[in-house]
Amino acid sequence: MAVADDVLEPAEGVPDMQAGELALGVLEGTELAEARRRQLSDPDFAREVEWWNAQFGLMGQQVTGVMPPAGVWRAIESRIEGMGNHAPTELGRRAPAGWSIATALAGLGAAAAAIALYVSTPTGVPVPAPVPTPAQPARNVLIAQLSDEASGMKLASVVDPTAERLSLSISGLAAAPGKAPELWVVPEGGAPVSLGQIPEDGQLTRELSGEETRLLVAGALVAVTFEDADGTRHEAPTPPIVLAGPLDQV
């Protein structure tokens, strides 16, 4: 429908409700992007989103329950067994098929698909022998594609939780003199945690600590800021967030 007045009419006396709008899921486009950036950079805002989530969770319970068919649990069970015992095999099977972020993104929506970045697969990465460790269920590879068309900045991140490995493909993160790009992960509803400074351009692959792997899960946000180029991990990001986007399961 063609809507002429897409500017919010002045709502005098109505406080900012963006956290509630984000939790409710009504935001789209630039408003959604702005709210996600706030969630990254403003811990108070992030807490408010969490509060709204808890409230709306109560509302969710009004929905009438419906028994799912028995096959759903069997499918979940076999997927978990598959993850626990065969995740490395699955990764190996994907690699020869020329797996790429571009391919993986085909189903992930128009915005993501518009990004023309290509990151080569971690083909040939030695995969540890399958060791089913119940305490650490193996997980799927995760990706985050971040880009800003205006500035040409792009970052593709591939997280392999099984191998505890992070691969980045970076371009155009031109920092001011004395500044360097720094990578952050923001758990849902949590405060940003630095993953360290990264190059302005090029490829980077490094091991992840167990703690970092635990944070880099589907739904967590990955973000980039420019910080003082001192090679350290900073406590908190300095606005503005120059790139941000969620990690998705491939």
Binding site: M1, V3, D5, V7, V14, E21, L24, G25, V26, L27
Partner: peptide, 22 residues
Amino acid sequence: SHSELAERIGVPLGTMKSWIRR
């Protein structure tokens, strides 16, 4: 979303945003 609600209910987008916010 905001725009889907506006379409379903048949009000301008700005009105819908205002309703939700209020």
